[in-house]
């Protein structure tokens, strides 16, 4: 049985099989509860059977230094000095946000290489990936990575294989502080509201939910103590959206330019049909020129009119 819950499919202009309705899911990451233990990174690596190379220390706690084709989630550490002069250690679990309007899917040129499930999960199908990297160009969060080994794009799947059989993602399962929770998007929003009330009561007056509207909302959301300044958290975009450049590149301009090319070919064809070829035929021309000369000689005679077939 084929998958019947695909609500969007890359490089596909007709509907994918989408009759199965399911509730939207979401992963909620409560940054205020995170202790930076990286158990989620390990769980991700274990469940997905990926072993990234042991890298170098880059002078921060971030390890590895960046997301890679083998590391789909990463703790990013920020040392922030607040207005009172206190140090705040802001730790954010980075990874695919599973946007409702995914820029990667919009940019992808290969049919079916990126799909969006009815539950909100945006998944890469490496079988169809051609390795062009357009998903990286389209992503407002800088998430997908092309593997050096096979030139395919990889990123967090939100453990679509686990979720499809009713399990929570591996990172959620392993989180020792309960900073990562998983459920329907509605439930996660309710849970976030409770957390925000609690944070506000403890002095974080700008605490809030990060579910950015610019990408239609996300299926990975953050509870932030400083929701007014998301960029504090290692450059989490304040107002992410698919770049207008990408929308223009992949939007209405494509069918319009295809139509313009088709119209140019048709214009040529009908010009040929209506006006016809332009010949410099030797015989005809020579004959014609001789005739014109003769007529010119007689041009004093008003009864003789010149006749040029080209001027009809």
């Amino acid at each position: 049985m084929a998958t019947q819950d695909i609500i969007a499919r890359s490089a596909t202009t007709t509907s994918a099989s989408s009759i199965r309705q399911v509730e939207e899911v979401a992963k909620l990451i409560d940054v205020s509860k995170c202790i930076g233990c990286k158990a989620c990174q390990v769980a991700c690596s274990e469940w997905n059977d990926l072993r990234d190379d042991v890298g170098q220390n880059h002078g921060t706690y971030d390890n590895p230094a960046d997301l890679t084709a083998d590391s789909w989630t990463l703790m990013r550490f920020t040392e922030h000095e607040n207005a009172v002069g206190d140090l705040e250690w802001l730790i954010r679990k980075d990874g695919c946000m599973h946007c409702a309007e995914p820029g990667c899917l919009k940019a992808c040129p290969s049919p079916g290489a990126i799909v969006q499930h009815a539950n909100g999960i945006v998944d890469f199908n490496q079988d169809h990936c051609i390795g062009c990297g357009y998903c990286i160009t389209g992503c407002p969060f800088n998430i997908p990575r092309i593997s050096q080994k096979d030139s395919k794009a990889y990123k967090c799947t939100l453990c679509s294989d686990r979720v499809s059989v009713g399990l929570e993602p591996a990172c959620v399962k392993t989180c020792p502080t309960g900073a990562i929770t998983f459920g329907t998007k509605e439930d996660m929003k309710h849970h976030a509201e409770e957390r925000i009330v609690d944070l506000k009561s403890r002095g974080y007056e700008n605490a809030g939910l990060y579910d950015p509207a610019g990408v239609g909302g996300t299926h990975v959301m953050y509870v932030l103590h400083h929701a007014d300044k998301p960029a504090l958290y290692n450059d989490l975009p304040n107002d992410p959206a698919v770049s207008p450049m990408v929308s223009l590149w992949k939007g209405i301009t494509k069918p319009l330019s295809l139509m313009a090319m088709g119209a140019a070919v048709l214009a040529g064809f009908f010009h040929y049909v209506r006006v016809g070829p332009n010949r410099a035929d030797e015989e005809d021309e020579a004959h014609h020129e001789a005739a014109v000369e003769q007529v010119k000689k007689k041009s004093n005679d008003a009864s003789v009119k010149t006749f040029d077939p080209n001027q009809r």
Partner: peptide, 28 residues
């Protein structure tokens, strides 16, 4: 660059359609 590449390619292809048709139209 991705946008510019597509726009320039569109212009190039359109120009070549004109170029090829001119060759068909003007015999010789």
């Amino acid at each position: 660059a991705a946008l510019a590449h597509a726009v320039a390619a569109f212009l190039l292809i359109l120009s070549i359609i004109v170029h090829i048709y001119a060759g068909i139209w003007i015999k010789g």
